[in-house]
Design a protein around this nucleic acid. Structure first.
Length: 562
RNA sequence: GCCCUUGUAGUUCAAUGGAUAGAACGAAGCUCUUCUAAGGCUUUGAUGUAGGUUCGAUUCCUACCAAGGGCACCA
């Protein structure tokens, strides 16, 4: 508004004023390029124009701005005042863990579907990736006022189940009911791997597995039904243990077997309108509507609904919960397939299609040669979590904790190491997961963020012991870099929410942590001799609120000690 | 062949059309009688190629080159 007024004073009209934070704090806290943008149209030199604008601006400067400067080709840079930063610290203290909340999506009902592991198959690191991204997006949307429901869609029937059961039948030891569900689920995963291999390489095994598959559908074999029920329950329980560790609590579990009939009905009801017969199958020729799309089969020539048809059923079921938006998080390999399905839905129920959003992420690849001891490249989520946790426990040997505390912290730090390496980059591309790096806990890592938080908490503990209360009014003249970052948190959350991109938060937290660690390293914060110590303590509180809330939005716990 | 995504330091990633393209890892050095050294402070390096639009391009457009994914009865 100040800039607008100044321009109006100069009889220049402009609707779109770009105001941004300069990358380098040396260039002020806010900056505008209006002088550059309009110089040409008003036929004036940008620098001259900027000078004039500054002159006008300086006539009624609010106390939040300490100075305005012209720089570079004609940028106008604003420097916020000491008072402004002290005020923003105070505001963060008042908001505490509500810092960064906005109401852009207030009361919108949003369902987020993510993770989607299949019973009878291992929970691999790809599931870990989808889970980390989905959970973070869910939490970011909640912070923007949405009412979020979390959904998990799982393939409880199909060839993969038959492969696992085949493996179990061939090796009865794997059917052992002793030990944790995790252990039993691991055995089933092994059975699956055996069955999958046999299906590829052994003609007889293939026949046998197809036979088992039929029996599973028909539910007419007592022995297989029993194994199925046990296997289903135990793998689902094992997933549940992982979700608990990862910080996810699902509200809805959709099963493919239940979506099949619903989807099939929808397809059959729309033959002629949307779908057509081709070579005995029922297909959707999406290229008729969009040359970039292609034909897909919805009901096979055998009369069985495909995944595409089930997706229609799933969408129908989801919207029964009365949604404003339905988000799916999957790997990017599903993108073209999902576009075709979305097109079909748009023809059947345009309202639903308009509210759907598909967020896709790349693959989790492993840095070559770093996973040495593990065989193949199918690393389960559990084994990765365990390995990381063990590495952390080793690092914690010099800290004093009860066994229970130690386990919990190691688990939280481990999850953070993994989630951080997933969420630090924008979600389109592949992620190269480097095991060694993720447990190095240095610099660019989740544990680094948690460590900064834990140290700040120690500062606060000491302040309490020494009876020094935080006071946002006792500020020194110096403005610390960490303050110049803290007040931006709400903007960062807002951007993450509008772009569905958690990495803005991740990168921001690293910057803030670095600034705080530098602040921490350069002075003694809790110091009775220092009159501004109460302010520094207030600043530390503000840091902990932002860090804790930011980590929460990433789906990461913030232990007070580690 | 067609469609989608991505090409940035040695490596892994950032950068609403803006300023001297940011970090981290790696490498070299300094730093714990102080609130957790999983820390802090120094030093060192990049926009795939060729055009175009623009006052200004890593960003937008076109072509080429390279990598990944997808393209009918699997999920």
């Amino acid at each position: 508004n100040l800039i607008k007024d100044a321009l109006e004073n100069l009889e220049i009209e402009i609707n779109d004023i770009a105001l941004e934070h300069p990358e380098d704090l040396k260039n002020g806290d806010y900056s505008t390029n209006v002088a550059l943008a309009i110089a040409k149209s008003v036929e004036r030199n940008p620098k001259e124009l900027a000078e004039k604008i500054i002159k006008k601006l300086n006539k009624n400067l609010p106390e939040e701005i300490s100075k305005i400067e012209i720089a570079g080709a004609g940028f106008i840079n604003f420097y916020l005042s000491r008072k402004f930063f002290a005020n923003s610290v105070e505001e963060i203290l008042n908001k505490a863990e509500n810092v960064g909340k906005n109401n852009v999506r207030s009361n919108q009902k949003i369902m987020v579907e993510y993770t989607d592991p299949n019973p009878f198959k291992p929970f691999h690191i790809g599931h870990l990736m989808t889970n980390a991204i989905g959970e973070s997006i869910a939490r970011i949307l909640e912070h923007s006022g949405a009412v979020v429901s979390r959904a998990n869609y799982q393939g409880d029937i199909g060839l993969h189940v038959a492969k696992a059961i085949y493996g179990l039948l061939k090796n009865e030891k794997l059917q052992s009911k002793s030990g944790s569900h995790n252990l039993q689920a691991t055995n089933i995963g092994q059975a699956y791997a055996h069955g999958a291999g046999a299906y590829e390489n052994d003609e007889n095994a293939k026949k046998e597995i197809d036979e088992i598959n039929k029996k599973i559908y028909e539910r007419n074999d007592e022995k297989i039904n029993k194994i199925y029920q046990w296997g289903f329950d135990v793998t689902m329980e094992a997933f549940e243990d992982l979700y608990k560790m990862l910080g996810t609590k699902f509200d809805f579990y959709f099963l493919e077997s239940q979506m099949a009939g619903i989807g099939e009905d929808i397809v059959r009801a729309n033959i002629g309108k949307v779908f057509e017969e081709s070579d005995g199958a029922i297909v959707f020729k999406a290229e008729k509507y969009d040359p970039k799309l292609h034909t897909r089969v919805f009901i096979t020539s055998q009369g069985l609904p495909t995944y595409e048809a089930k997706e229609l059923g799933l969408t129908e079921e989801k919207f029964k919960t009365n949604l404003d938006m339905s988000i799916m998080v999957t790997a990017t390999e599903q993108i073209d397939y999902m576009r075709v399905v979305a097109k079909a839905i748009s023809l059947i129920n345009p309202e639903h299609a308009a509210k759907m959003r598909h967020i896709t992420h790349g693959m989790m690849r492993l840095a070559s040669g770093k996973m040495g001891s593990r065989k193949g490249n199918t690393i389960t989520g559990e084994s990765l979590l365990n390995d990381v946790r063990d590495a952390i426990l080793e690092k914690m040997t010099d800290r004093e904790f009860s066994n229970e505390e130690r386990e919990k912290i190691a688990s939280d730090v481990g999850v953070s190491a993994i989630k951080y390496s997933i969420l630090k980059q924008s979600i389109g591309g592949d992620i190269v997961y480097d095991f060694e790096k993720s447990i190095s806990f240095e610099g660019d890592s989740g544990p680094y963020l948690q460590y900064s938080y834990a140290r700040a908490n120690s500062v606060l503990e000491k302040a309490q012991k020494e009876n020094i209360l935080p006071d946002p009014h006792a500020f020194p003249s110096e403005i610390f870099e960490v303050e110049k970052l803290l007040y931006k948190f709400p903007e960062i959350v807002f951007r993450s929410a509008s772009e569905y991109e958690p990495h803005y938060i991740t990168n921001y937290l690293i910057e803030v942590a670095r600034a705080y660690n530098s602040f921490y390293g350069n002075m003694i914060i809790v110091n009775k001799e220092d009159k501004t110590s109460p302010y520094k303590i207030a600043l530390t509180y503000a840091f902990t609120f932002v860090m804790k809330t930011g980590l929460h939005l990433l789906g990461i716990e913030a232990p007070k000690k580690m």
